[in-house]
Nucleic acid binder design. Structure first.
Length: 640
RNA sequence: GCCGCUGUAGCUCAGUGGUAGAGCGCACCAUUGGUAAUGGUGAGGCCGGGAGUUCGAUUCUCCCCAGCGGCACCA
């Protein structure tokens, strides 16, 4: 007998060997019709599978969240079948479920075109209509290998070889087509429905390794209903509207051009936002005892060889040869420069922790295919800092840093922050003893701060383990921004030391940290997070002063002067245009506040205020309006 | 870097083997209008760069550059 606990908490006994299907039928006929699969202790299983042991059981219908996983997986299989029916010479490889959908990688001489997607979709609808049942078989290794070898499915053969010996080889059939698959699947292809769409074709390396051949990947999205599909496609369109590259152009913040791939041309408005961020960060750093410094943009290659950067990243550095035949490297990081500043003048243990910060512009020759708007550029500004301290101080410093970082993110409306801990990578400098020490110290700091974190094995920097701070934005996308890295290697390599209480020389520990990460990227993230509608303190243009009639022009000039005197950034619009036109234009430009001035306002010293995104108008005395805005435009860290 | 797609006016996009068009924007003129487009006139282009095929290329072919979507990479 098996004892099964249902979602409502009830417990019932069943005969051994009862399948999910039998279970569903025993509950109700309609449930058994709607059932796609079942779950045991949270794990999905084929409806036809016998229930192997006691546990929490649930019948999965298409209304359960878990159904999406099944629908997407099955859609991927049907897509693979469709592709092979259309182009029999195509090899199938893998086709997993991903966020919002699935993909399947194919090996084929000729790549798919976007037109092919429609053809494939049509074929998929045919296959789904046939409503062939998914059936599972367990094959022997030899049988499977012989079958796929004979079919010319060499990638599948490679997959079979990679499956551990103690694991069963499962084959799922749908009609005449079959695939090696770990399952589970729904009952039949008809259960997929019509809520899917193929989205794009792309290249992808076999097994994610750039040494391997490139396969053709087709991405699709799948949902349990047409309505959900429609909503998803609509969300994609909305996300496109917040794209920082688009908004950057529309709002006249910055541009890119061919002559400087991966480099930002900042326009005045964008630069104002950038400077607002720096001013904010400078205040936060000042109050946390950082000293701001500035190190050279170019330094002799020899220094980069000593630091280890040349060996690890030389191919990704910009270099320049001068007439005197010296080779200089544009700095890809600020740390070696900061070490020189630390080294200049003998340091005592009494000076530690020695905290220096720089808004340094770094240069990295990123691979062309990696460039992406401001999110991945070749020249960017880091809010970089280095804390030189003793090993005993690591924990305290990391705990403080953590508090600072989280409080900064909060000021930008990011409450949802994930922390990842990355330990030693394969390519690294320093002995294992040093790594043991620095990993233990950083881990202790996270634990002391009471943080929950995810483990990211092997993803640390080449000189030390790191914490990464990942923000979740307004539409649920994750962005890795801040980082804290404990480094027991570089100070030694670059000959930095301090005089310990004993009078002996000791190498300090270096904590590398960035909070925004890249200022350029952070601007891009903010643009997308706020969809261009910045809070007043960040908005490059805060108020547009618009006149209705030219009689109000002089008054508008007075209003402008008052706004400027209050530290706000207004623009004046006294053009010979109708007020409708001006409102429309400034709304498109996402100016947060409009002051509309006509004869009435000029006469009694008031302004008619319209906020971005609202049709309401509020009439207020000018001084009252300005002091309210002044209050609102105060950066969050300066509010009382 | 790899696979695929794209590149025409400031922006969004039509178009053709015989050196180009729309809307918006811009300039000028008229209009002084109360909260998301007032009307008229006009200027604006080496059709991403280079080579080839051709009597002739923005259009066809090849190479390069850049952008876009992925993959790989990300100190």
């Amino acid at each position: 007998m098996v004892s099964l606990t249902f979602p409502d908490g009830s417990v019932r006994e069943y005969d051994d060997g009862i399948s999910g299907k039998d279970l569903a039928s025993s509950i109700s006929k309609s449930l058994s019709k709607k059932a796609l699969a079942f779950s045991l202790d949270g794990d999905l299983m084929d409806l036809a599978d016998p229930i192997p042991h006691d546990g929490q059981v649930a019948i999965i219908t298409r209304n359960e969240p878990q159904a999406l996983e099944l629908i997407r997986h099955d859609t991927a299989h049907v897509m693979a079948q469709a592709v092979q029916e259309l182009w029999p010479d195509t090899q199938v490889t893998i086709g997993p479920v991903i966020d919002d959908g699935f993909f399947y990688d194919f090996a084929r001489e000729e790549p798919f075109s976007t037109d092919d997607l429609e053809t494939i979709e049509a074929k998929m609808h045919e296959i789904i209509k046939l409503n062939a049942p998914f059936t599972k078989e367990v094959w022997s290794r030899d049988e499977a290998k012989a079958y796929f070898t004979e079919k010319g499915e060499l990638f599948k053969v490679e997959l079979i070889d990679a499956i551990p010996d103690d694991q069963e080889l499962k084959i799922y059939k749908q009609g005449d087509w079959l695939d090696l698959c770990r399952g589970p699947h729904m009952v039949s292809t008809g259960q997929i429905g019509t809520g899917f769409k193929l989205l794009k074709v792309a290249g992808a390396y076999w097994r994610g390794d750039s040494n391997n051949p490139m396969l053709q990947r087709i991405y699709g999205t799948a949902w349990s209903s047409d309505k959900e599909l429609k909503t998803h496609l609509h969300n994609l369109e909305e996300a496109e509207k917040r794209d920082h590259r688009r908004l950057g152009r529309e709002m006249d913040l910055f541009h890119f051009q061919e002559e400087a791939p991966g480099s930002v041309f900042w326009h005045d408005k964008g630069w104002r936002l950038f400077q607002t961020l720096i001013a904010y960060m400078r205040r936060r750093q000042d109050e946390n005892d950082y000293k701001e410094v500035n190190s050279p943009d170019m330094m002799d290659k020899g220094l980069w060889e000593k630091s280890g950067h040349w060996e690890k990243f030389g191919e990704h550095m910009f270099t320049t040869q001068t007439p005197d035949d010296r080779v200089y490297c544009c700095k890809p990081m600020n740390c070696p420069g900061h070490v020189q500043i630390f080294k200049n003048g003998l340091k005592s243990y009494r000076e530690l922790p020695y905290k220096i910060a720089e808004f340094g512009k770094v240069h990295r020759y990123e691979p062309s295919g990696a460039l992406h708007g401001m999110m991945r550029v070749r020249h960017f500004t880091q809010d970089d800092a280095h804390v030189f301290c003793t090993q005993d101080q690591i924990t305290k410093e990391c705990v403080e840093l953590n508090q600072l970082i989280l409080s900064i993110y909060k000021d930008f409306g990011f409450e949802n922050v994930i922390i990842k801990y990355s330990d030693r990578p394969e390519k690294r400098v320093g002995s294992d003893e040093v790594w043991d020490k620095s990993e233990a110290a950083l881990k202790k700091a996270v634990e002391a701060a009471g943080l929950t974190y995810e483990l990211n094995p092997g993803e640390g920097a080449f000189y030390g383990p790191k914490l990464e701070y990942v923000l979740r934005d307004a539409i649920g996308r994750d962005w890795q921004c801040g980082t804290v890295q404990v480094d027991l290697n570089l100070p030694g390599r670059l000959g930095a030391f301090f005089i310990a209480p004993s009078g002996e020389k000791e190498h300090p520990v270096m904590i590398h940290r960035a909070m925004f990460g890249s200022l350029e990227r952070f601007c891009g993230i903010l643009i997308e997070h706020y969809a261009g509608r910045f809070p007043l303190w960040l908005a490059p243009t805060q108020v547009a002063v618009c006149t209705i009639v030219s009689e109000a022009d002089n008054y508008a000039q007075d209003v402008m002067a008052k706004l400027r005197a209050a530290g706000l950034n207004p623009i004046l619009d006294i053009r010979n245009e109708k007020i409708n036109y001006k409102v429309r234009e400034h709304s498109h430009a996402k100016v947060p506040v409009l002051f509309v001035l006509g004869g009435r306002e000029a006469e009694n010293g008031s302004v008619s205020i319209r906020r971005l995104g609202s049709k309401d108008q509020t009439v207020m005395a000018i001084d009252e309006a300005i002091s309210a805005l002044q209050e609102e435009a105060t950066p969050p860290d300066m509010r009382t």
